[in-house]
């Protein structure tokens, strides 16, 4: 249902926009109905930028994003409301998602005013109560309170309930549990996974591989705006091929084993401009001459794609 085709995002930075920052480079992937896809990357990998482009919060520099065959950059401002009936987002910081001086349930009133002005108050209240129960909240306990009186987990559930009121098709979940406490994290994650049974697609943006592995069928590994590896979550986690993916998985703190290898420390300042070769060249322990040329992403086995010369060379042999 969602399809990204060679999407790029370029920011002009510096005085008079003299320099270019490539936040997203030539990214293509798709999400099917009822599928959870994880977009995994460090900060600065462009994962949130992709989410924002899908939500039409920022423009697309190059390429196209289509939903059910419709190019989203061609939607007129007037029709954007119809778009948001289908696609909604939940963001990382639950406290920043609420206007601190209003009650938290104002987000439901706004949906009522903007999307369903004809529904009478009584029916609407029932609808809100149902949505809240769907996300595991007791309406009596949470309605009529200010954001600071609710916990981070409750606030994120509120936002999911808000999206459910709209009968959406796609939810962009941008790091929605990274600021929550461990004890409630998993419940919000389960809730997200349950949405699948309603036929919802989820773009799950995260930096935490264990979470991505827990809920998604497909995963995309992003580094400095480029896709390095993508495919079924199972294949990527059981058999990570790209050196970057291998490093990420080895760095995840686990409760069953301790860290083995050392991480190579980054001693460079912010990255600008377009690297001509592989984006991971500077940090890659296996980098060789060929890596100065940009590696194309190739399919190494069914539903498992990697952009790495070392992998593609060994495939040829």
């Amino acid at each position: 249902m969602l399809e990204l085709d060679h999407v790029s995002k370029i920011y002009k930075v510096g005085t008079f926009g003299g320099k270019e920052l490539h936040a997203v480079r030539d990214v293509s992937f798709s999400i099917q109905d009822g599928e959870v896809v994880s977009l995994i990357g460090e900060s600065g990998s462009g994962k949130s930028t992709i989410g924002k482009m899908v939500l039409r919060l920022i423009s697309i520099s190059d390429g196209s994003i289509t939903i059910d065959g419709e190019d989203i950059s061609k939607i007129e401002t007037k029709e954007s409301k119809e778009y948001y009936r289908k696609v909604q987002g939940v963001f990382q910081d639950p406290y920043s998602s609420y206007n601190p001086i209003f009650k938290a349930d104002r987000i439901f009133h706004i949906i009522h005013d903007e999307f369903y002005p004809d529904v009478d108050k009584h029916t609407w209240d029932d609808k809100v109560n149902n949505a809240l129960q769907d996300v595991g909240l007791n309406p009596e306990h949470v309605l009529g309170k200010f954001p600071h009186q609710l916990s981070g987990g409750q606030l994120q559930r509120f936002l999911i309930a808000r999206a459910l009121l709209l009968d959406i098709k796609l939810l962009v979940a941008d790091e929605i549990i990274s600021m929550l406490d461990a004890s409630v994290r998993i419940d919000v994650l389960n809730l997200l996974a349950d949405l699948k049974t309603r036929g919802l697609s989820v773009l799950f943006i995260t930096h935490d591989l264990s979470l991505a592995n827990y809920i998604s069928e497909s995963a995309i590994i992003l580094y400095r705006g480029c896709i390095l590896e993508r495919g079924s979550t199972e294949k990527i986690f059981d058999n990570p091929l790209h050196p970057y993916t291998q490093m990420l998985i080895s760095a995840v703190p686990r409760l069953d084993q301790k860290w083995a290898t050392k991480v190579k420390l980054d001693s460079e300042a912010a990255h600008l401009g377009v690297p001509t070769g592989c984006v991971y060249y500077d940090r890659c322990p296996y980098a060789f001459e060929k890596c100065k040329v940009h590696p194309e992403i190739i399919e190494v086995s069914t539903d498992h794609h990697v952009a790495c010369w070392k992998v593609s060379d060994s495939q040829e042999k």
């Binding site: 948001y84 987002g89 963001f91 998602s97 206007n99 987000i107 706004i110 949906i111 999307f115 936002l159």
Partner: peptide, 26 residues
Amino acid sequence: TRDFVDLAKLSGMKSFKIIFSEIAPN
């Protein structure tokens, strides 16, 4: 740049309304 402004945009609110009902009260 706060998320609640983005969320208001996702609710299809008009810019004018976002300024006066979301930003100004703060």
